[in-house]
Simulated assay, not measured.
Amino acid sequence: MFTGIIESLGEVSHLEKEGGNLHITIASPVAKELQIDQSMAHNGVCLTVVSLDENEYTVTAIEETLQKTNLGGLKLRDTVNLERAMILGSRLDGHIVQGHVDQTGTCTSVEEKDGSWMFSFEYDVSLNNPTIEKGSITIDGVSLTVVDSGTNTFSVAIIPYTYENTRFHSYEVGSKVNLEFDVIGKYVAKLLHWGSHGTNDE
Rank of each mutant, 00 (worst) to 15 (best):
I62S: 09
N55M: 15
M40E: 04
V156R: 00
L76M: 08
Y161A: 01
G135L: 03
H100D: 03
I62G: 07
T60M: 14
V156S: 04
E83V: 02
T79G: 09
R167M: 03
S149H: 05
E63D: 12
L71C: 08
D78G: 05
I139A: 11
M118C: 14
E133V: 11
V156F: 03
D148K: 14
I132S: 10
N70I: 00
S109P: 14
K134T: 01
G99M: 15
L66T: 13
F168G: 01
D140C: 05
T166V: 03
N81D: 06
T153Q: 13
A157G: 04
L74A: 10
S126R: 09
V125S: 14
S39P: 04
D78T: 06
S149W: 07
R91G: 01
L144N: 02
N81E: 02
S51Q: 12
S120M: 01
E63F: 13
I87A: 07
V97K: 05
V146I: 10
M118T: 12
T106H: 01
G141H: 08
E164I: 07
I159T: 03
I96L: 15
T108D: 12
N128M: 11
H169G: 01
S90M: 13
V59I: 13
S51T: 15
M86Y: 09
N129F: 10
G44S: 08
M118Y: 00
T65A: 11
V49H: 11
M40N: 02
T48F: 05
N55F: 12
Y161Q: 01
P130K: 15
M118V: 13
V147G: 02
M86V: 15
N165Y: 15
H169P: 00
A61W: 05
I158W: 04
N70P: 03
N128T: 13
G89L: 09
G99F: 07
L92S: 01
Q38C: 07
L88K: 09
K75N: 12
W117D: 02
V80W: 11
G150P: 00
G115F: 03
D148V: 04
E111Q: 13
M40C: 06
Q103D: 06
V110W: 02
V50L: 05
V147D: 03
